[in-house]
Design a protein around this nucleic acid. Structure first.
Lengths: 354, 354
DNA sequence: TTCGTAATTTACAACGTTGTATTTCCAACG
DNA sequence: CGTTGGAAATACAACGTTGTAAATTACGAA
């Protein structure tokens, strides 16, 4: 059924090592021999056994991707792009869903789940800065996201503060003065997490524009699901406080916000302009279409794969951990007043190592 | 760094086979020996090398999932559920995106992409009935979807005709008489594919209710993306033909339809009731929320994983190919007139082997 | 023709595990 | 006290591949 080097060798009348040499394009194989071997390979339908190769070489050609949940659009799109990039490098991707639980994420780090992989891309959501040491695992690991900084591994992340500031400035630039923020983290506002970094950018923009910071405009919502975005907006409307714009800390929340505004017959963007964060595919098709911050997800995917493969191939003197920040830009759509959306408006910072 | 059976054996003062026996819970190991070995395992931090195990056993514990694209919600949610089910069975999942291209799908069947897997779940979108023979591959394969029938492999699919008929009857039951269908396949209407099967269900429902079939109400849209759903609805509105309901052949189209109706200030469900198909997560959060047919996706995921693992473990007399049809039900939401959505309304058919 | 050198091919071991067959151990029995 | 039989432990080979080192071949120069 399945043929091996031995079968090919027998048919071609050479040793298995010669077949191996042909398969691996080694030099020093006489053209006539190569031809004979190739014919034999075709005849018996030989395909290298990757498991055996993996045992011999210590590499499987598979990388792991540990994310909270595939059914969250951001992660589905991230996984999609990561798989595409890995494919270009001849690597396949095994996906593990941690469920955003501490337990699941620690299991990833303990190497209990993504066996049979050469390395792991890890996007934590439950672990935090206090777990930084647990990142010191025995296999190549690239960290994604904003939950932990300064760890012992490469790290690919986004300009959270700067891009949130840019989003807020975008709203201010259109004349909005009372900007609600949807999706603050209910408890610890000093914790390093996307919510707080983006909140900081929001505050910086207000301050720079000389606008007051009104805590009443800052609404908690967690986790960042549509229903929570809608609920936060309903509550805000219920409170009766005046506002003319909303910055949702991610697009999913933003879609919920649009929904709540729609229910309440508040006009977007006339009465309230809305901008989200993440630029998921879906935002283009909301009614109205949702403006957003594109945090450079595709670039993150590509850089992360590249870095991981570099680490996997690394030998000798280890390179110290690197941190990469992706480009971002504002995507202006109907929810901030553009009738015919022109993509890719604002400029971005360049990719930079820190 | 990484320790092997040999290291454990040395520490415990036994042979590697004894360690292996302990690891694999074989009988005939004296309790005192077992204890000593377990201590040694803990001491050196031994973890079995899955590649070596795989080489020896011929199993990797990994299954492949070949789908068009992860960024399509339906497939992200399917993959999510499949990964969860596989995890329960101690199996991991490698994802391949075919891009819905013929080339990509044939590569899957040629076994060029999902190496290192014990078997593959395959959801084709480009291949059709004429390619049925190419399903006769040399590895365990379970077919998903409606593109090919009667092939040599197990097949998990949905009640396309029946559930589309139920959706249409649902609209008729609320008094709608002029029901548009969005998402027909532009070219071959006899081809076996979801579009045509669902179209058939639509026609059956009309006929059973004594309603005329008006080809003008049947609108092409392909591929099933939001923009195409929106475009089809805009065109229908432009044509000026009267209608009081729309059946979108999937939810993504349906969301586009809602968008186009919203733009045109057509009230949903007052003027036009809308129902979709697939029941993706997003539909719950549209404005208005989109009613849909739940085609039993979670069940499909579970059954598919079970069947594939059964095939992988199969030995001796092969069981003939099986076909499983999943349960379906109508999910009634705002777009068909329910103010406070009650999920899971209509009854379903039972799971049944054909 | 013979030798030296480079090109080509090969044998063998090893990667870490587990199945098979064998050996060793130990207690009970005659 | 020797024998027997099952439990416990082991040796060895094998899964399919590739690195290393050794063997063989080819070819031009002496």
């Amino acid at each position: 059924m399945v043929s091996t080097l031995h079968d090919v060798a027998r048919v071609a009348g050479v040793s298995i090592k010669t077949v191996s040499n042909v398969v691996n394009d080694f030099p020093h194989v006489r053209p006539s021999t190569r031809e004979r071997v190739l014919a034999a390979i075709a005849e018996v339908g030989y395909r290298p056994n990757l498991t055996a190769r993996g045992l011999r070489s210590g590499r499987t050609g598979v990388i792991g991707l540990a994310i909270p949940e595939l059914r969250q659009n951001y992660f589905a799109e991230l996984a999609d792009t990561i798989i595409r990039n890995a494919r270009l490098r001849n690597v396949s991707v095994l996906i593990d869903q941690t469920g955003a639980t501490r337990e699941g994420e620690l299991a990833v780090l303990a190497g209990e789940r993504l066996r049979l992989t050469d390395g792991v891309l890890f996007s934590p959501e439950a672990l935090g800065q206090e777990d930084i040491e647990s990142l010191d695992v025995g296999f190549p690991l690239v960290l994604l996201g904003e939950r932990m900084f300064g760890g012992p591994t490469d790290h690919v992340t986004m300009h959270n503060v700067e891009s949130a500031r840019a989003a807020t400035e975008h709203l201010i630039g259109m004349g909005r003065r009372r900007i609600a923020l949807i999706g603050a983290h209910p408890r610890n506002r000093d914790d390093i997490r996307s919510a707080n970094l983006r909140l900081r950018g929001y505050r910086e923009a207000l301050e720079a524009a000389g606008l007051p910071y009104d805590p009443l405009l800052v609404r908690d919502a967690a986790p960042w699901h549509r229903e929570n975005g809608a609920a936060a907006m309903r509550e805000l409307l219920h409170v009766g406080i005046e506002f003319d714009a909303a910055f949702a800390l991610n697009d999913t929340l933003g879609l919920g916000v649009l929904r709540a505004l729609g229910e309440a017959r508040v006009r977007v963007p006339e009465d309230v302009a809305v901008i989200g964060f993440d630029n998921i595919d879906e935002s283009r098709f909301a009614l109205p279409s949702l403006s957003s911050v594109d945090p450079g997800r595709d670039q993150i995917a590509q850089v992360a794969v590249d870095m991981l493969l570099e680490r996997i191939e690394e030998k000798g003197e280890p390179i110290p951990p690197r941190q990469i920040l992706a480009d971002f830009h504002i995507v202006d759509r109907e929810s901030t007043g553009v009738a015919h959306p022109a993509e890719e408006t604002a400029a971005a910072t360049a990719v930079q190592a820190v």
